[in-house]
């Protein structure tokens, strides 16, 4: 039985949310979907900030459906963090424990410890206005965790950051989310964010769950056109040395620039070219693979390939016919190194 079992029906504006969301202890679940899909409504409902028209929220065996937010064992990281401007970072983090009845000294000691874990010991006295975006994000996370929640909720946790900071913060956030032993639900519209941060992705469209599964499965076996178009991303966890990323299963992926250590390597399905014979020329990534499935979404065809590497490739219907890509067919897949993006893991 999952730690979080929520079945939520809620009306907001002219729009109906009707979705089931589950998360295990220690599991990070990403609610992914386009704008207006109901992700934030779902998150607000889990937090108790949005009244439910029906359904229930059960957390670790306890029905919290009727509890107001202040009595739910939750921590929320809001989209623009909502740090209290008139308090220091330390008092922001100590606020939760104080409200839950800890003494001032104990709350502050706990807050100081958390800030130190986040590498922010020297910013404890700073007001939120004096913190950088990445620091504010960590203070917000520390504040949400300080009172020992059993459910952690994050609303677009990286969207307030500029692109450069986002990459830095993403790796740190991933490590901290996986260190949390309760259930985590994060909302995002960014497929990459969902794939890197989450153990499981729940895709919401128009208020309903359309797909649910591990990131690789959602990317490789998209069930709707939205998922195919936006979530379609080949993503691998591996170890980089120089420009080569070694992934479990034996395959190697060539990256455009050198690096070292654990990384995510990603390339979009449209960057994959398929050949009946070994190609020659510039692409440095060439793998002999076997077709395991073919699916059509609108005017594109997603070909699933297996072997040393699981790869999704988008081809035109004409290419499909020309290459005779039926399940079981053997093809050569190639990707230019320049199409591969690496992110520190």
């Amino acid at each position: 039985m999952s730690a979080l079992q929520a079945r939520m029906r809620a009306q907001r504006g002219g729009f109906l949310l009707d979705a089931s969301i589950t998360a295990d202890r220690g599991e990070v679940v990403a609610l992914l979907g386009p704008n207006g899909a109901g992700k934030s409504t779902a998150l607000r409902a889990l937090a108790g900030l949005q009244p439910l028209a029906g359904g229930s929220v059960v957390l670790e065996g306890r029905d919290i459906t009727a509890l107001p937010p202040e009595r739910r064992p939750i921590g929320v990281v809001f989209q623009d963090y909502l740090l209290f401007r008139h308090m220091s970072a330390l008092d922001n983090v100590a606020f939760g424990p104080r409200c839950r009845g800890e003494s001032k000294a104990a709350a502050r000691a706990r807050a100081a410890g958390l800030l130190e874990e986040m590498g922010l010991a020297d910013r404890a006295r700073s007001r939120p206005g004096a913190l950088s975006g990445g620091q504010a994000q960590r203070v917000a996370l520390a504040r949400a965790l300080a009172a020992g929640p059993r459910l952690l909720l994050l609303d677009e946790p990286l969207s307030a950051l500029d692109a450069h900071t986002r990459e830095e913060v993403r790796a740190g956030l991933r490590a901290r989310l996986h260190a949390f032993d309760g259930a985590t639900v994060l909302v995002t519209h960014d497929p990459l964010e969902a794939m890197v941060l989450a153990d499981r992705i729940t895709v919401l469209e128009e208020g309903a769950v359309v797909q649910d599964g591990p990131p690789a499965e959602v990317a490789l076996r998209p069930r709707t056109e939205y998922v195919a178009r936006l979530v379609g991303l080949n993503l691998y966890r591996g170890h980089q040395e120089g420009t080569t990323v070694q992934v479990p299963g034996g395959a190697r992926i060539e990256a455009p620039s050198p690096g070292a250590g654990p990384v995510f390597a990603a390339f979009p399905p449209r960057a994959v070219a398929l050949y009946p014979d070994p190609p020659s020329g510039t692409p440095r990534n060439v793998w002999p693979l076997e077709v395991t499935g073919v699916e059509r979404f609108g005017d594109q065809v997603r070909v699933r390939l297996g072997g040393a590497l699981e790869v999704g490739a988008d081809v035109t219907p004409a290419a499909l016919a020309e290459l005779d890509l039926a399940p079981g067919a053997r093809v050569w897949a190639s990707v230019k190194a320049a199409e591969v993006h690496c992110y520190p893991a």
């Binding site: 937090a47 107001p68 202040e70 209290f84 008139h86 939760g96 409200c99 839950r100 504040r143």
Partner: peptide, 26 residues
């Protein structure tokens, strides 16, 4: 911004605490 009061509520603040420690100072 009432969302600060919501943030306080998710941290366990009653409406009175949220008023005293968040709303009024802001």
């Amino acid at each position: 911004d009432r969302r600060y009061e919501e943030a306080a509520a998710t941290l366990g603040a009653t409406r009175w605490t949220a008023f005293r420690r968040i709303t009024l100072p802001m």
